[in-house]
Amino acid sequence: MAVRNLVDTIRDTLHQEMARDPRIVVLGEDVGVAGGVFRATAGLLSAFGEHRVIDTPLAESGIVGVAIGLSLNGMVPVAEIQFADFIHSALDQLISEAARIRYRSNGDFYCPLVVRVPYGGAIHGGLYHSQSVEALFAHVPGLRVVAPSTPYDAAGMLRAAIRCQDPVIFLEHKAVYRLVKEEVPDEEYTVPLDRAAVRKEGSRLTLLTYGLMLHHSLAVAQELEREGVSVEVIDLRSLAPLDKETILGSVRKTGRALIVHEDNLTGGLGGEVAAIIVQEAFDSLDAPVTRLAGEDVPAFPFAPPLEEAAIPNREKILAAIQELAAY
């Protein structure tokens, strides 16, 4: 057991899994000699060699397409897209191919594949180093989308993703990489890819979130607890498929639901979560299902005052909770 942050946990888990299973191959831009721009693959090249840790040409569609091919021929690829913002040129490979190979072949072919995707804002990344892309992929049946937000989950879900027989979009929030540390067991445990987690129990309302917003929400909820407002915080973490049981169980208990994500509001994951709650727990609701999300702007701007204005923060979360709790 060691205290680790999220990015170190990713790296250690990759190392451990690659040592366990010779079929695992890591590929992407700068993942080899440089060890990844976030250092998530540091040391893997010297440990496992250039056949298994591949610095690829700078071409995202090629990276994902080659990973699919590796998978179709018995390897277990873990591809890295350097920033979520660059994944769009690989959409054809992810949506038309990875997601559909099992279905279109009537189960004759399938492609186990992990695509690690650093995502998210609040790191002064501007329009093209800040995006959240989960809603795009959660819309596509055939893909699993997960967003672990704690080191413990990062290790358990990465192991589960590597061992899963489906393509998994594995979202890692850049601002969370070094934000939190916790004890992470050394042994090989897994965390399921289809279960949400109750991070803090509460009774007045349910706050559903993931990523950086999870940590902001927990901080605000703990502060409010002292003031007598009891907020239950759910870490969705499995974004596709969603864990309806945990979502509905909590909302049936509290009667109020607030969904918080930094991805922009329109067409975001919050809409799907809200629809599930309204359709299946309508009788339990004491207040309108509420969403707090990033501004509907094409992407987060760079200048700090603009960026701050576009992303939900603790003040905005606090205000949203107070308003819903008082309804």
């Binding site: 994902v64 397409g65 091919g69 590796l70 021929n73 390897m75 490979q93 191919e97």
Partner: peptide, 11 residues
């Protein structure tokens, strides 16, 4: 086409 490259790479 990239699939073919990945399959061959695995071989």
């Amino acid at each position: 086409i990239p699939h073919a490259v990945g399959i061959a790479l695995a071989s």
